[in-house]
Design a protein around this nucleic acid. Structure first.
Lengths: 224, 224
DNA sequence: CGGGTTCTTGACTATCTTCAACGAAAGTGG
DNA sequence: CCACTTTCGTTGAAGATAGTCAAGAACCCG
């Protein structure tokens, strides 16, 4: 499940690994900055993220970029369309991935359980992307960033000293390209949230949620 | 396949109907303005649009709306996530739909061919939605509307008197909510395209493409 | 420690939205 | 079929949000 506004899937299901009764393929490992695949590549494998964070991006001819999703442990990346990858996929951190043959999705390969799990994952992704449409099309900069932090806190936040804390392995421009903003706007919005004491910025990559309910309100547009 | 920036699927495959060897369920018919399902409904059927145009929408608590997609003949609507519908679906025109049991997607129901076709349709939808992200997040009003008209022309344009002509069964506010704009901006952008002689507006719901290459350039951001 | 990248901040600008009015089209009822 | 009402679409003026350009600060890495 990808980082978008959640529909219902809570952290109730933290990282249900898909287990295949078939060929137990060895986990893949990635270093930060290395690519798993590129747009246009033939799809041979899907991958479940076991450890780490990946970034899926698409480029426009003139260099404008859209981050499609950040993939966290439990998520599946690499769904094919007409047999091809439609995004670039880069590791933001050290990562470990469990590969599944594309055929496991497309014809089951005799493993009905795995097949069903991959399909459900694809369907959840459709729903998650629909949420993200609302974010991109209809939310203000502040609502976008607040939503983003809420979702991340929900999925991968850790409690530290009575507050939830979130690690942001991606750069400000990754966040900007995910939310349809510029880095400057992302930066200003972080500052604004910090000054209004909704969050604290421990360091650039670590955010502390000081007022979770305020953050949630902002994410829903009650901030007016 | 939904109305978004196309990846590769051209009109080469105009309306390949999915044929089931199983229960030949009767076609459903819809009048304009009637709903096929609502967000939150249990999914029992998927539908392939045979005739007509449907609109898939999502609402925010405060009434802001996002049009997720317009579904044209050949498209499948109703993919479940956790068994539920995640959009509202309304007919914009008279429509005819071929229903398929949800089980045909989820476990094949013994019809492997239908199962595979539904799965491929879901995967293509994921790719189409990724295109739409770029549109919502990274394009200007003019690029958005030009892209929209290009895609529609490609999919459902008809040649009339040497020019391609496109019918727009949806309202201006549907277009606005699809592109993440206001109705005023959509209207102004139509006027701008008309004044620069890229399109002609035969009537509110019928657009003539006077300069297709100029429209394509605008959609890609070469308009500067 | 130093050089390069990333992040933040400021001033200014552009694009799009908002608010408001008007006109056109479509639906309703006599 | 026409008058009335309502909805939808267009246009204008003003304002706000986010973008652009530019400089300085913080961070990272060798």
């Amino acid at each position: 499940m990808y980082v978008t506004i959640p529909t219902d899937h809570r952290r109730s299901n933290p990282i249900t690994p898909l287990k295949s009764v078939m060929t137990k393929t060895a986990e893949a490992r990635l270093k930060p900055g290395s690519y798993l695949y590129f747009e246009g590549d033939e799809v041979e494998w899907l991958y479940q993220v076991m450890v780490g964070v990946l970034r899926l991006t698409r480029l426009l001819a003139d260099g404008r970029r859209q981050v499609i999703a950040f993939a966290y442990p439990g998520d599946i990346v690499g769904f094919p369309a007409n047999g091809l990858h439609h995004t670039d996929c880069e590791a933001l951190t050290d990562a470990r991935l469990q590969p599944f043959r594309r055929a496991a999705l497309e014809n089951g390969e005799g493993d009905a359980e795995l097949h069903a799990a991959l399909l459900q994952s694809a369907l959840r992704e459709i729903s998650a992307m629909q949420d993200h449409f609302m974010m991109l099309g209809r939310k203000s900069a502040c609502e976008k960033l607040a939503s983003f932090l809420c979702v991340l806190t929900e999925r991968v936040g850790e409690e530290v000293g009575g507050y939830m804390q979130v690690s942001l392995p991606m750069s400000r421009s990754d966040i900007a390209d995910f939310l349809g903003l510029t880095t400057e706007t992302v930066s200003r919005t972080f500052t604004q949230l910090r000054k209004s004491n909704v969050i604290a910025i421990d360091n650039i990559h670590t955010i502390i949620i000081r007022r979770p309910t305020a953050l949630l309100s902002l994410s829903l547009g009650d901030g007016d």
